[in-house]
Design a protein around this nucleic acid. Sequence first.
DNA 1: GACTCTATAGACCAGTCGGTCTAGTGTCAA
DNA 2: TTGACACTAGACCGACTGGTCTATAGAGTC
Lengths: 201, 201
Amino acid sequence: MNAASSNPGTRERLVAAMREALSRRGYHGIGLNELLATAAAPKGVLYHHFPGGKSELAIAAIAAVAEELAGSLDTLMLRAGGDPAGALEAWMGAAQKLLERSGFERGCPLATVALETTPEDRALRSALASVFAAFRAHLASALAGAGIADSRARSLAALIVSAYEGALLQARVAGEVQPMRDTSQALLDLIRLSLPGVKGA
Amino acid sequence: MNAASSNPGTRERLVAAMREALSRRGYHGIGLNELLATAAAPKGVLYHHFPGGKSELAIAAIAAVAEELAGSLDTLMLRAGGDPAGALEAWMGAAQKLLERSGFERGCPLATVALETTPEDRALRSALASVFAAFRAHLASALAGAGIADSRARSLAALIVSAYEGALLQARVAGEVQPMRDTSQALLDLIRLSLPGVKGA
DNA sequence: GACTCTATAGACCAGTCGGTCTAGTGTCAA
DNA sequence: TTGACACTAGACCGACTGGTCTATAGAGTC
């Protein structure tokens, strides 16, 4: 592979540009020309690497996000010494900082596209659905590993993801982190209160 | 007003069409021509009623949603006999039904636009921000009315809205209500567990 | 009946959209 | 040296975008 590439990072640049665009403006919010300009790539190159065009590139970007997600969850759990509440706190805090640092422009790269899709966008939706499902499952297993019963862990994982996405949304339109801070505080309070046996709580 | 209107509901039809479009496809997802077609209105009429064009119409639709929101929250609280957990359960259940009935096409009419906006879309963002803030405040006062301390009520309100939006998002892409069911179950469990004194719990 | 004002109606516009197509360019293997 | 192949490059396309403009219809006032 990469036999005659005079510009080896093109594909990656495209994916990165799409990822960035998704987290700032969503799928319909970014035009191909603008995207190509930020990636410093001409049109032909997009359709060479992604014959399916814009939507295929978006799916690739989503896959890239998914990979990163799982990794950072593990890192956070490790750093928090296996305490899910501590990891969650760190997670929410990091998201707040990212939001603030970007002037409330960058949010979750998955959420916007997720809401923009219709059931007709089969490929895009199923890609998103499986990323969310995988992340919930990953999170649930981390919770189960901390001693929470399986079915409980599953519903709690869903709540955590929901709270995260909803908090990001509210903080973003508000242009201030307060809704996110409130959300994470309430969530952490409830979790720590209900799981007194969990280490680190 | 309405002096020479041969078609009295035009403005309302436009707002309704935009509202529907926002909950299905978001702001960028719907074209003016398509919107006008579903509202059975020609272009001139849109710019007559909404000189600011598409975005002004969207703001009107958002305002309409806001009005309805406050009303239905009060209704639910009343029906639940003042028990916030019961009202929340009914609320989440209703959202699930709406989602299923629409084939997972209709979501929250605010969430998608909220994520699509950038800080440059000042009018749209501030309209959305104030709707969310008002709804959180309304919810918080309902919680405070049920005996929860003010600061606690505020953060809990933020969590509830976050969980609602995030759950809707996940269920929608998944094409199944499970993530929403899980989210609301976990949330209700935690709330009921932590607030044993609240009547109806 | 003439004038005014609100509302309806849709032709029309420049700009942009996502996507296609053809023409190079550089590096292999033979 | 030649041909194959991966990749880059951007002109070009029809469709559609949000928005403007002019024409008309109909009720109210005098």
